[in-house]
């Protein structure tokens, strides 16, 4: 169960690219052990917000704290090793095999080889990735396999937090449903703090403890799924949910 302890404290951050406002005065807190899903139409700033959490993007104003520590591009090298990061299409390095991708950081840090390979076996089991495929290159794998490897890579150093940017966005529907169920199981096993970006309401409801709905760089409402559905903060929330109603209902039936 989520605790009241803050893992991320986001305080009034804004970020613009030229005239485009990506983030506008965003404030939110993410607690240890909870799964927060960032959702909204494309260009609403959800990916930008996610990437301020591990310092890939630095806000123009405001601050982001991780475990009380200020997140900055320089200070965050050590910090990032406690933050797993998975992006759409995996972001795997094409010149490295699955095994090399997963263990890149461990090897770079000079970790013990036997421990490393034991950890990989453990993760392969968790993510149901066939160990025989570990020496394949990304180009030789299916989209679903790539996401599993990407997840293994993010989990390799046993981070406190997983940040996932549309992890299922590039997959076709069948594989997607399959991996969704697997991910949910994995997340429940791990009990880690999760921040996940998606544009799909059904997926958000499926994973989230709390959902943050964003529009034009602002968080419109952040709440548990039930509240979001029952007491929308403004008409946009209703509008956005209604647009995705059908898939949500389908998902709820599936879940029940």
């Amino acid at each position: 169960m989520p605790s009241e302890e803050a893992v991320f404290s986001v305080d009034g951050i804004s970020r613009s690219y030229g005239t485009h406002v990506a983030l506008s005065d965003v404030t939110l807190t993410i607690h240890r052990g909870e799964t927060v899903v960032l959702i909204g139409p494309s260009g609403c700033g959800k990916s930008t917000l996610l990437r301020t959490l591990n310092g890939l993007i630095t806000p123009d104003t405001g601050s982001v704290r991780f475990d009380g520590e200020l997140v900055t591009p320089d200070a965050s090298v050590e910090m990032r090793r406690r933050l797993g990061y998975v992006i759409q299409d995996g972001g795997l390095f094409p010149h490295l095999t699955a095994y090399e991708n997963v263990t890149l950081m461990a090897r770079h840090l000079g970790r013990n080889g036997a421990d490393t390979s034991a950890r990989v076996t453990e993760l392969a089991e968790l993510t149901q990735f066939p160990t025989a495929a570990l020496d394949r290159y990304p180009i030789e794998m299916s989209g679903g396999q790539r996401q599993r490897v990407s997840l293994m890579r993010a989990l390799m150093l046993d981070p406190d937090v997983l940040l996932l940017d549309e992890p299922l966005g590039a997959l076709d529907p069948l594989i997607r449903a399959d991996l969704q169920a697997d991910l949910k199981r994995i997340f429940e096993t791990l009990g880690k703090t999760l921040v996940l970006v998606t544009h799909d309401m059904a997926e958000a409801v499926f994973f989230a403890d709390r959902i943050a709905l964003m529009r034009e760089g602002r968080v419109v409402q952040i709440d548990i799924p039930e509240h979001l559905l029952r007491s929308p903060a403004e008409p946009f929330v209703t509008q956005f949910i209604r647009a995705q109603q059908k898939s949500v209902e389908a998902m709820r039936r599936l879940d029940a």
């Binding site: 591990n54 890939l56 090298v77 990032r80 795997l92 390095f93 770079h108």
Partner: peptide, 16 residues
């Protein structure tokens, strides 16, 4: 860019 960001997010320093 996605690969550069993945490398950064892993915690690799610029030289690495």
């Amino acid at each position: 860019l996605s690969l550069q960001e993945s490398a950064t997010a892993l915690g690799l320093r610029p030289w690495a």
